[in-house]
Design a protein around this nucleic acid. Structure first.
Lengths: 222, 222
DNA sequence: ATATCATTCAAGAGAATCATTGAATGATCT
DNA sequence: AGATCATTCAATGATTCTCTTGAATGATAT
């Protein structure tokens, strides 16, 4: 009995890990880290069919990673826990430390300039308060509109070159995006540094910022 | 290109999670958390064939969770990182918080007495120094022999009742075992409290104790 | 009530994963 | 050099996972 209990427990732990073990589900979680979403929105965001998304979401739910509620005709999913973010982040950190392919890709994305340390969220918050920083939100416009760090400006990687020419310098540039699996901020920093503009990225992303209870605003307030 | 880079990264993160997503592999990791082991020893410990163990170990290696080296005829595997422990632990914590079945099983094992808070390793270390505690190592004898907390006494759950009758009281009893997926310490506490003896378990297990740089000893020194 | 809409369910084809078996490799020991 | 031992490899069937398709459900709105 005790042996089978152990078996059962381990099976459940494995279930959680398995739920994290498919790229599509990680993409769904990344979306959910931005905030709660309906099945339809999630499906279109990650580019898969609604039925397929629904099934993956249910797997995530069985693993206790997300919860759902009905809102009118829609079913809204959300992360069950801010700790889920920690789990996702640990996965990424582990991969970067121990898998050569991962560190290679990341080095490639950051233009070989991997020595650029990210700025901590705490320090960034101070710098924002002091006004000595220009903040770039590198996420899609609709996500920016829903919530972003106060004072941040929305930008796309493609538009950076143009934007850099016209901009008025105001302190160091800090870029951020979705969170653990974000790469746009990395690219942004690479592009800007190539142009001779000093830039860094924020550690983590908006979800982590929010999980720490820091302020975010929606676009119509700005 | 940037999109495919993101795909590749996420695929790697999922690979890590998938490696954690099979009970047999979690058992192997639990063993490895006790210390480095050869393939043969691991196979017999978790009760699977050598060939099968070897394949699972290679999967863990591809995910960067373990490394191996040759030592004479044997290949010795070990956790690649103390952070691997954190990952395993987080999996368990998440499951306990968010999966009803898990908390039920755990409640059953601890005799319904789940309110018994574990003692932190830091506090335990102080209590040991003060001599005001009786320590029980609930792992198999061979693991105890390889390394245990100084002053701990090896015990099996079955032998606890007998042991409790004969024992000389010396402070509170603290039990520990393997680590994140340990249940023996939980059972020990339940048995002892049923006998009216005050007992708690240590938070985490021997691997976490060692990961913090605390002292362990081998049996022949005792 | 009926129509509509978002989501879930059910069934099936295709791919990936798992355990077993027996052979191959690579290092040691005599 | 040959024998021995631990591990890995390769091939096989069994199981499980993934995605698609089309129908079913459940809630709202007219």
């Amino acid at each position: 009995m005790s042996t089978s209990a152990k078996r059962d427990l381990i099976e459940e732990y494995a279930l959680v890990a398995r739920a994290l073990g498919a790229p599509h589900r990680l993409l769904l979680l990344e979306q959910l880290a931005q905030g709660e979403r309906s099945v339809e929105v999630l499906a279109s965001k990650v580019g898969m069919s609604v039925a397929n998304s629904s099934q993956h979401l249910q797997q995530l739910r069985r693993a206790g990673l997300v919860t759902n509620r009905r809102d009118g005709k829609s079913v809204i999913y959300r992360l069950s826990d801010d700790e889920t973010l920690v789990l996702m982040d640990l996965l990424q950190k582990h991969a970067r430390r121990n898998l050569a392919r991962v560190s290679e890709i990341l080095r490639g994305l950051s233009g070989g300039d991997e020595a650029v340390e990210p700025i901590s969220r705490a320090e960034l918050a101070q710098r924002i308060a002091a006004g000595s920083v220009t903040l770039l939100d590198m996420r899609p416009a609709d996500e920016y509109r829903m919530a972003h760090i106060p004072g941040a400006r929305n930008a796309a990687v493609n538009a950076l070159v143009r934007l850099a020419g016209a901009r008025e310098q105001q302190g160091e540039i800090i870029a951020y995006c979705r969170g653990p699996y974000c790469i746009e901020a990395l690219q942004a920093v690479a592009v800007l540094r190539n142009l001779g503009i000093s830039a860094r990225r924020m550690e983590g992303g908006l979800p982590e910022w929010r999980a720490e209870g820091r302020e975010v605003v929606a676009s119509d307030i700005e």
